[in-house]
C-alpha cells in the first residue's frame, strides 16, 4: 500500500449555501509534492484551510499522517506548517522576534527558539534585516519570513498556499529554490498555485481544481499528453514548395494554416523525429523559411480542461 501522508476523501464544503468544494479526493504520498492548480475562486485556499484544521468540512474525511484532522486537530497541528496567501507575521515585531515567538509557541524552549530563529534567518537570507520591524520588509522578504515561521518546528508536512503570488520574478526564483530544498530534506508538501509554470517546475504531481472539483490529476507530463503530442511547425513562403510539403506530410495528422503558410506536424518529441522531417524536406528539395518545435504547456492543458467543463 502506498504511504499516503495527506488524504482527502469526498470533501464537501459550502459557505452560505454556495458550494465551494464539491467532493474533493486527493492523496499526497510521503516525500512528494502535489501542486493544486486552479484559477482564483476554484477552492484552493478552502482545501488548504481544511487540511490545516482551520476549517471543518461539511462532509468527507481528512487524514493527515493517519490522524483524522476533524476529530483530533491538535495532533495534526503538531505535524504541519502552514504558509498562507497573506504573510501571517507580526508587522510590529522584528523578523527575529517573530521567529522566536513561533518557536516558543511550539514549546521549543527559550534557548532552542533563539538558536532556531538564527538558523532560519541565515537559511532564508534574512540576517541583515533580522532586527528590523517586519513592516519595513519588502514583499519577498515578508514571504520568506512567513515561510520560515511555518518551519520553526521542522514540520514533516507543509502546506503552501500560493507562496509566490504577487512576487517579482527574482523573489519567485528564490522562493522556488527554498521550496525545492524543503523537498530535498524529505518534507511532504501540498502547494497551491495559479501559475502553471510553477506547478510544472516544482511538483511531482498536479491536481487541477476548477469550481470545487478536481478535473484532472497526474504528473505534468501525463497532463500534457492529454492535450496532445509535441508538434514541429514549418513555415514555407513559396507556393509550389508549400503545396509539395502538404502532400509530403499528408498522412501524419498535420494542421495547415494557409494564411501563415505554416504546417504543423505531430511528433513524439525526439530529435530523430524532427531530423526525419527535415530529411524528407531535403530529399524532396523543398526549402523552408523557418521551423519551430512546440511542446504543449500546462497553459494548454488548463485551457483545454476548463474549456470543456
Amino acid at each position: 500500500m502506498a504511504d499516503s501522508v495527506i488524504e482527502l476523501r469526498n470533501i464537501k464544503k459550502s459557505y452560505d449555501k454556495v458550494a465551494v468544494l464539491e467532493g474533493i479526493n486527493l492523496t499526497v504520498e510521503r516525500g512528494t509534492m502535489l501542486a493544486l492548480l486552479g484559477p482564483n475562486g476554484a477552492g484552493k485556499t478552502t482545501t488548504v484551510k481544511i487540511l490545516s484544521t482551520l476549517l471543518k468540512p461539511d462532509s468527507g474525511e481528512v487524514l493527515v499522517n493517519g490522524t483524522n484532522a476533524v476529530q483530533d486537530p491538535n495532533t495534526v497541528r503538531h505535524m504541519i506548517g502552514l504558509t498562507g496567501q497573506y504573510a501571517a507575521v507580526d508587522e510590529l515585531l522584528s523578523g527575529r522576534e517573530n521567529l522566536i515567538m513561533m518557536g516558543r509557541l511550539y514549546h521549543l524552549g527559550k534557548e532552542k527558539s533563539v538558536a532556531r530563529a538564527q538558523e532560519l534567518l541565515e537559511q532564508f537570507e534574512l540576517t541583515d534585516a533580522a532586527d528590523r520591524a517586519v513592516k519595513t520588509y519588502s514583499g519577498g522578504m515578508r514571504r520568506r519570513l512567513d515561510l520560515a515561521a511555518s518551519l520553526v518546528a521542522t514540520p514533516p508536512i507543509i502546506f503552501l498556499d500560493e507562496p509566490t503570488t504577487g512576487l517579482d520574478p527574482r523573489s519567485r526564483l528564490t522562493m522556488w529554490k527554498i521550496i525545492q530544498d524543503l523537498m530535498k530534506n524529505g518534507a511532504t508538501i501540498l502547494l497551491t498555485t495559479q501559475y502553471l509554470e510553477e506547478a510544472d517546475q516544482l511538483a511531482d504531481y498536479i491536481a487541477v481544481l476548477d469550481k470545487g472539483t478536481i478535473i484532472a490529476h497526474g504528473t505534468a507530463d501525463e497532463l500534457k499528453s492529454k492535450v496532445g503530442k509535441e508538434r514541429t511547425e514549418i513555415v514555407i513562403e513559396k507556393n509550389a514548395n508549400f503545396d509539395n510539403a502538404k502532400k509530403l506530410f499528408d498522412d501524419a495528422g498535420i494542421k495547415i494554416n494557409e494564411e501563415e503558410r505554416s504546417i504543423s506536424i505531430p511528433t513524439d518529441g525526439s530529435v530523430r523525429a524532427v531530423k526525419s522531417i527535415l530529411d524528407k524536406l531535403t530529399n524532396a528539395n523543398i526549402e523552408i523559411d523557418s521551423m519551430s518545435v512546440h511542446k504543449p504547456t500546462l497553459d494548454d492543458v488548463f485551457l483545454e480542461l476548463t474549456h470543456h467543463s
Binding site: 491538535n74 497573506y86 501571517a88 507575521v89 511550539y106
Partner: peptide, 13 residues
C-alpha cells in the same frame, strides 16, 4: 484581518 490569526490557529495552542 492580517492572516496571522490563521497561523496562530494552525498552532497547537
Amino acid at each position: 484581518r492580517r492572516g496571522i490569526v490563521d497561523r496562530f490557529k494552525s498552532l497547537p495552542i
